[in-house]
Computed example of a mutant assay.
Amino acid sequence: MTNKNEYWQYRDYCWNTKGIYFRYNKDGSSNQYFLHINDGFTLYDKNGTLRNGSALWSIKNDSTFVFDDLEYKIEKITNKEILLSYYNPEFKDKKCFVKLSKWIDGPEGPKPLNNQDKHEKI
C-alpha cells in the first residue's frame, strides 16, 4: 500500500523499463504516474482517458506479488525498496528482476526515499 505523497518507481531490468511510478491503493487497485521535471507526478493519461485504478494488485502466500495477471516472487522487501523476480519465456525462461523504489513528493519536490534528509520525518 502507498501512503499519501508516496510513489513506487518501477524498473524492470530485463526490459530496461524505467520512468514509471505507481501508487498501490488499499482496495487492491493501483494508479500509474509519470514524473515530469516541472510538474512533478502526473497521473498516466492514455488517449484522454485516465488510467485510474485499472491494474489490480495483491500479495499471495506472503511471498508473491500479483500485479494484474503477472506474478512476481518477492526476493527482498524494505521500507525503501522491493526486489521482485519472474521468469520470462521470451528470454528463454531467464530470471528477470524488477525493483520498486519508494519516492516521496515533499516540499522540495519529488525525491527517492534514499535521498531524503536523515533528520526529515516521513
Rank of each mutant, 00 (worst) to 15 (best):
N115A: 12
R23G: 12
Y72K: 03
Y7N: 06
S30M: 04
D62F: 05
G48V: 02
I122Y: 08
Q116G: 06
S30K: 01
I82L: 01
N115R: 09
D105L: 13
K73Q: 05
L56Q: 12
Y44F: 08
N3M: 15
G106V: 02
H36T: 14
R11W: 04
M1E: 14
Y87A: 03
H119W: 15
N3Y: 12
N31M: 01
N25Y: 01
I122E: 00
Y21L: 04
I122G: 04
W103M: 10
Y86V: 06
V66Q: 07
K60S: 05
Q116T: 08
F67R: 03
T49I: 07
K121H: 07
N38F: 12
S101H: 08
M1W: 15
T78F: 09
K102P: 07
Y72C: 00
L113M: 13
E75A: 00
T64G: 01
T42D: 05
G19L: 01
Y13D: 00
Y86T: 02
G109F: 02
K80G: 04
Q32Y: 11
L100I: 01
L56H: 14
N79H: 00
F34R: 10
S29E: 00
N114T: 12
R51Y: 14
N31Q: 07
Y87P: 05
D68R: 14
N25P: 14
L113W: 03
F97N: 01
R23I: 08
S30P: 07
E120I: 02
W15C: 02
K121T: 13
D45N: 05
S85Y: 10
T42L: 15
K102M: 11
E108S: 12
G19I: 06
D62S: 08
W103R: 06
G40Q: 02
Q116F: 06
Y86L: 12
N52H: 04
A55L: 14
K80E: 13
R51S: 07
C96F: 03
F67E: 00
L50K: 00
D69L: 15
Q116Y: 00
N61P: 14
I37L: 14
F34E: 11
S85W: 03
I82W: 08
Q116E: 01
R23Q: 12
L56N: 03
E6L: 01
I37M: 13
N114E: 13
P112I: 00
K18P: 15
E90T: 06
K26D: 13
N114V: 09
G28N: 05
D39R: 07
N31C: 11
W15N: 09
Y33Q: 06
R51W: 15
P107D: 10
Q116P: 13
R51G: 05
I37F: 15
S101V: 11
V66G: 10
N31R: 11
D93N: 13
N61H: 01
N114D: 13
R23W: 02
N16D: 01
S58G: 09
S30A: 07
L50A: 12
I82Q: 10
K26S: 08
Q116L: 13
G28V: 02
W103H: 08
E75G: 09
T17A: 08
I20H: 02
K111Q: 11
L50T: 09
